[in-house]
Design a binder for these strands. Sequence first.
DNA 1: TCTGGGGTCCTAGGACCC
DNA 2: TCTGGGGTCCTAGGACCC
Length: 421
Amino acid sequence: MPLYYALVDCNNFYASCERIFDPSLWGRPVIILSNNDGCVVARSQEAKEAGVPFAVPYFKIKDMIRAHNIAVFSSNYALYADISNRVMTTLHSFSPDIEVYSIDEAFLLFRNAGKNLEELGGEIRRKIYRDIGVPVSVGIAPTKTLAKAASGYAKRNPHTGGVVFLHDKESVDEVLHNMSVVDIWGIGPAYAAKLKNRRVQSAMDFSILDEKWVRKNMTITGLRTLYEVRGYPCIEFEEAPSPKKAILSSRSFGSPIKKLNQLRESLSMYTSRAAEKLRKQKCAAGAITVFVMTNRFRNDPQYSRSLTMELPEATCDTSVLISSAMILLDKIFREGFSYKKAGVMLSDLVSEKNIQKNLFTHTTGKERDHLMKTVDLINNSYGSGKIFYASSGGDKTWRMKREFLSPRYTTRWEDIPLVTI
DNA sequence: TCTGGGGTCCTAGGACCC
DNA sequence: TCTGGGGTCCTAGGACCC
């Protein structure tokens, strides 16, 4: 029975989100910056054509921005996440089997479907564009890796109408021939360089490689990719998002910081964030790691360290986690460096129901639970960071830069667009 | 002179993804 | 002046055990 995977991929997703509410951006190059307005993480088609490279630091392209009248935005995750949810909800109406792969992509599974899949792809495209305003590309193929390849091909080649269905050898070969090996899902720059030495350039070259060589040089994951490219599905379809094994919260600072106090504030803040995420997925952490680092792009003296501590008892209590983080920070902090980034990682996660009690620690139990729930409730209702731990400080000189933030059109009452007649 | 072998667990580092 | 953040998986090698 034929089984096909469809990959639906939003085109230039962040840029498309900004355009929904600001039609003056149509036809104009648009770029979106990473946290701290550091580098470019998304570009509209026009911006790509104007020559803005991916991941380039913002300060390096200021001239180009002026010359091409490029619209610049800070990342507005509240907006993107909300639009993403709408897209995923719409996709659900096309197949009950959906794997939300990232904020702008989802796989759909189609069982026993025939030739009409191409048509269905077109329908998906039209519906999402009409209902939400986001253009998407659709790739349909017998494996996830080929579906990815197909949607990429659809995006690059307008004559496809944004939908590519790989249903026979000819159509697969056409796509693989016109695809660079580094664009295969699962092959990054390191493997691509290795492959280039073997004169493997196109995805087609890769598909006919010797299995043993791939296994030896690209591990078992590389071998899976090889089979997938040949049309044998090896990568599982995961409908339910698998529970996280670690939770990370880290940030670069708006400007470098030198004082222990400032590091303490920022780490205390990141720990609160991580703990919130932890409670949201109803888990407790058995270990905590703290790391600090200087700016590797500068010629200053460099320092980078991390330290992990096992907690006597798995916990999701923010204050326990903060005090543990502070102990770790005190151990790794060195005077005299300009720190650029710090973070905290919570690992050894267990379900909050299965916490192994420690005989020798004093737990306060229910009251703390209740306190945490209340803190989360307040912050969820009145905005993140409405109440916070005093150790997170009020100074916040280290806070993130977001100079070009658009309104949270869909998630904040004050920001809802007004229509004037 | 000859210096085992098999197993587990942990960690660091490297690869990839968006 | 200004170079993101948050993840997963795999492997090699060391420590340790019998």
